[in-house]
């Protein structure tokens, strides 16, 4: 599993609001760093890493919700949830295909045709998910969600993403 990016500037006496900005923006940039690889679709680990990061981001948003105005926060949370869910559907199929492929190695003559049939059906469903993911990120780009999200977090926490400049572990 991809390692979580270190959150810069965290210390035991930090204020809740500032911690909110630092953690949420780090997790946001971490998730988006896997966007190109996920859309390319050549390595299923890229999508897996993006999915894991998106869950970390959602968890951070749940944890720090009290730092944001409730009404406007819900819309941003909903958008992140849509990303997590869309990636999750594809990831679930990757895991299932991988799992059944493993079972195939030890399957008896009875199970083999069933597993092969299941895998074929899941591969069709997985191809459709690739289209959904591409459409979602196209829409987010058209709506300039990334810029709006970072500005929103900065407005309510005082933490600016470009100044925080989150980096993967080997750059830290």
């Amino acid at each position: 599993m991809a390692k979580a990016w270190e959150v810069r500037g965290m210390h035991p006496r930090i204020r809740f609001r500032e911690a909110a900005g630092r953690v949420v923006l780090t997790r946001w940039r971490e998730m988006m760093s896997y966007r190109e690889g996920t859309l390319l679709g050549e390595d299923i680990e890229e999508l897996h890493a993006m999915r894991v990061s998106s869950r970390r981001l959602r968890a951070a948003m749940d944890a720090f919700e009290p730092a944001f105005p409730r009404s406007s926060f819900r819309g941003h949370l909903r958008q992140v949830k849509e990303i997590t869910d869309t990636l999750g559907d594809a990831r679930d199929l990757d895991v299932a295909i991988d799992g059944y492929t493993g079972v195939l190695e030890t399957a008896d003559e009875l199970e083999r045709p069933a597993i092969e049939g299941l895998i074929a059906r899941m591969r069709d469903a997985r191809a459709a998910e690739t289209v959904h993911i591409a459409a979602l990120f196209q829409r987010l780009a058209a709506e300039e969600f990334a810029g709006r999200f970072e500005a929103y977090v900065a407005e309510h926490t005082g933490v600016v993403a470009d100044r925080l400049d989150p980096r993967p572990p080997h750059h830290a």
Binding site: P12, R15, F16, A20, P66
Partner: peptide
């Protein structure tokens, strides 16, 4: 759904807020 955490002051330090949420 997780219960909404009420009455938490985000301008306090992280520890008391985290304790309440946890």
């Amino acid at each position: 759904k997780p219960a909404r955490i009420r009455g938490l002051d985000p301008d306090r330090r992280l520890r008391p807020c985290a304790r309440t949420i946890l």
